[in-house]
Write a protein that binds this DNA or RNA. Sequence first.
DNA 1: CATAGAATTTAAAATGGTTTTAAATTTGCA
DNA 2: TGCAAATTTAAAACCATTTTAAATTCTATG
Lengths: 147, 147
Amino acid sequence: MANKEKYTVAELRAELEAAGIRPTAQRIAILGFMRENPVHPTAEVVFAALSGEIGSLSLTTVYNTLKLLVEHGLVSMLTIDDTFKCFDGNVNMHAHLMCMECKTIFDMPMPESVASFVEGLEDFEPKDVQLYVKGICKKCKLNKENS
Amino acid sequence: MANKEKYTVAELRAELEAAGIRPTAQRIAILGFMRENPVHPTAEVVFAALSGEIGSLSLTTVYNTLKLLVEHGLVSMLTIDDTFKCFDGNVNMHAHLMCMECKTIFDMPMPESVASFVEGLEDFEPKDVQLYVKGICKKCKLNKENS
DNA sequence: CATAGAATTTAAAATGGTTTTAAATTTGCA
DNA sequence: TGCAAATTTAAAACCATTTTAAATTCTATG
């Protein structure tokens, strides 16, 4: 299930408040960006995207806010690549593919049995599930062949 | 399928050579450690475990060697936790659970459908598959309840 | 409405795991 | 044995992220 294309400030504010987070302008903008953009941005990318909108925004705030949103389950953190940490505003369970060449991250539905595997775990209380597949995307494969 | 408990130097040497890696004493020791110990050590841990055996061993060599072994598929890298990078000497496909409290990483068989999911991917050539489940282990759950 | 206290944001500095550099050492091969 | 290439090492550099401390903003209360 994907997110909506557009969220109102009131919706974002309500989401933050429901999580017990004080809805500041920075937090609303960051959560809004994560909800509306079906990408997997790093903190740097979020900062670059929003620093026009909020002139005073600092990279520190973006880092701290994303961490806060992750801790409250409003955003999830992806560690698919060891060289950068990125975030996903779609917290519905799904798998991720990453092209090792162009670093693009693609969403995929989570295979059926993963949910039942996780539910069936004994002696372990699951909180977060990530399925990561790294490989080469079609575009990069073609590029390689023609060179 | 787990690894053996004990590997001979000749076996390790042969594995390195088959991968086109020159079998130095450091590389043999590091690969041996990874093969024989069913844990998920960081570079620091590998270094600490082997620096007695090889007095001159440097942490740099451990980092570089683990990277080399991963590049050649002899060892796999886990990015289950965003605060550390660790390694697995068992390259057979399996899932990982990590306790968010004590940070212990447990091996689990990979659920059936994941392999077929990966094989069924179109327009994407898979190279590495990781299923990570983060949560709370039994021991830590009990500890929390009694406090 | 004024104001104080608390929370948040910010810039700057610090942190720490990892990589790079360059020199020293070791290895394989003639 | 000796040389060229590869590897290892210690030290320095790197850089994404966190911490610090001061400035700002928000909220509650009189």
